[in-house]
Amino acid sequence: MRPPLPVKDGVGPTRLRIPSDGSWPTVGAFLIDRFPHLDPTEVERRLAAGEFVGIDGAVVTQHTALGEHEFVWYYREIPNEEPLPYRETVLHVDDDLIVIDKPHFLPTTPGGRYLRESALVRLRLAFDNPDITPIHRLDRPTAGLVMFSTRPDTRGLYQTLFAERRVSKTYEAVSALPDDWNPSTPTAAGHAFPITYRNRIVRDRDAQGFGLRVAVDEGGAPNAETTIEAIGAGTSRTGRRVVHTALHPKTGRTHQLRVHLSALGIPILGDRWYPDLLPEAPDDPSLPLQLLARELRFTDPLTGRSRTFISGMDLSERPVDGDVAPTPGAPR
């Protein structure tokens, strides 16, 4: 569904579904109810200014009846959005792709309280290209490689690579060292490395934070699989005893890597969602989520050539001395 409004200042329009019936006499009344954080007069002003439109570009007014539009588009506004100090690094640019190293705490795309302070908007402005679009995403707390399409003509070919799981992805994580760690025969939850872990991940409908967290369905058929290798274990620069792992997801379920390491008794350091959902708190640069998208490998659909991108970042809590040899073949 192509938006009827163009990208403006690097920011694309937001789409909102409008109910076909309900207790609201008009679309305007629904929008006032939908945005309780805005003064009703501000919503009315934006409607009168023609800032909400339907798929055909027709202006939606305060008196437009429910049922006339299934969706409306508009530009989000975040007053006083504070600049984030975390800067992306551009690793590669060609006619079709941009690859960046995304730091912890920088959103890939606009969302929540972040709009202009996202990798997508920054790249659109830096390259003066409103067609830049992410081919995949990383959560805001996760650092590492993100790939963007630069033009619509070839975007679908690269998106298909991810949809059909033809991209080999390697992540790295750092976790607290288990109390029963044996450096000569390292295990996690009784599993010897390398571990191929499978389970069924579903939305956690009963827990606080529904819509954000996921849960494990112990009785269901597995729908998530990750191979986990030990890179090493030892002491971090801050004195923590840690284990450093390489993660190769075969599937791409929401929060899969975080859930799998938590299930194995080695939850990722800095994870405020798994195994327990902690109260919301300001970002802690001293201990960001210790999860890094290290490597992407795929066969380029345009040239047929193998391509590899490797992050130049490192996890701050990785061991600086070690007492266990890596799993054979694991990244060093």
Rank of each mutant, 00 (worst) to 15 (best):
G232M: 07
I228N: 07
H63L: 13
R213S: 14
Q256E: 00
N129K: 04
F35Y: 12
G312S: 09
V99S: 11
Y158H: 07
W73C: 10
W273P: 01
Q208P: 13
L5C: 07
D283F: 10
A163R: 13
L84T: 01
V243T: 04
T14W: 05
P222K: 12
E81G: 02
H136Y: 13
P222F: 13
E317R: 02
P79V: 09
F35P: 03
L177W: 04
V146L: 08
Y86M: 02
R45P: 10
W273M: 14
G156F: 00
E229V: 06
L106Q: 13
D179R: 13
L120M: 14
V242M: 06
R203T: 12
R200F: 01
I132S: 06
V216E: 14
F309D: 08
T196Y: 06
A49K: 12
Y86H: 11
A192Y: 07
K8Y: 09
R241Y: 01
L247D: 00
Q290E: 10
K102I: 01
T108L: 06
A29F: 05
N182Q: 04
L289S: 01
E280R: 08
L120V: 03
T226K: 13
T196F: 06
V93E: 13
I132F: 06
F193L: 02
T238Q: 14
R332A: 14
G111L: 08
L38I: 05
R294D: 02
D204P: 04
E77P: 01
A192T: 12
E88Q: 06
G57R: 04
I310K: 15
T187M: 10
D271S: 04
T64M: 11
D314C: 10
R200G: 02
V90Y: 11
R17S: 13
P186A: 08
E295W: 05
R198F: 08
Q159A: 15
L287G: 02
R87K: 09
D21V: 10
R237I: 12
H244W: 05
A173V: 00
A192G: 07
I18R: 00
D153S: 15
T154P: 09
F210T: 10
P85M: 00
S311R: 10
T245Y: 01
R76V: 03
V320S: 09
A176Y: 06
R305A: 14
